[in-house]
Amino acid sequence: MSLLEIKEATLKFGGVVAVNNLSLSVEEGEVYAIVGPNGAGKSTVFNLISRFYQPFSGSITFDGQNLLDRAPDQVADLGIARTFQNIELFDHATVLQNLLVGRHRHRKTSLVEELFFAPRVRREEIAHREVVEEVIDFLDLQPYRDKMIAGLPYGVRKVVELGRALATGPKLLLLDEPASGLSVEETQDMRWWIDDIRKQMGITVLMVEHDMGLVSSVSDRVLALADGAKLAEGTPAEVQADPAVIEAYLGVGAV
């Protein structure tokens, strides 16, 4: 059984069909990339999985459970974490605090315990901190631990967002354009991290990305989208060689 399965999902905004009868399945342990021109509906697929959008028809299941039964804030509880295309961090908090918010779904303490900072709260805080420190080590974020997000460079923010998603302890990681706006070196780092996330942590990765270099080096399977519908699916090489994909990217007559 696939970890994530989208079946015949359709979503319209007014008259515009953003996702058109799309089916895809992500297997446990793989890196699955979605590529496509701007406006192809890539981020919309993510927003369907995050439950920010409700599909008109179709089904989405994760780990055997119906995702459409869940509210947007319950998606994280199932073990799905994500990053955002335009970085949505908590700007007026430190890197550490941002990552600790990632642990939110694991908290067990009640309001009253937190008001009095009961011993259990302290124990939990330290446990969360240990997980977060591992993420900080993994992503080399030590120099920024106590820095405010608002003052950090773009590339670092991108990494912090990845870290925050990892801190939730996900089974499935959704990366929305992880390399956009990054320098060549930063993209290289991102490539190794994605590889390690899959191999060392055993986390399944679903990503949207424009950088074909990154896509073909880390992903097992690629889905090409155009106008919200599936254009081609297969290994990176297969998809890159697909005439329909080349046409969608370069226009009619380029083949």
Binding site: S50, P72, E88, F90, H92, A93, L100
Partner: peptide, 19 residues
Amino acid sequence: RAFAAVRDSEISATAMGVH
């Protein structure tokens, strides 16, 4: 921290499991 998360970005607070 959840308070600060709601203040700074409701959308990503939701994605982190904050109601």
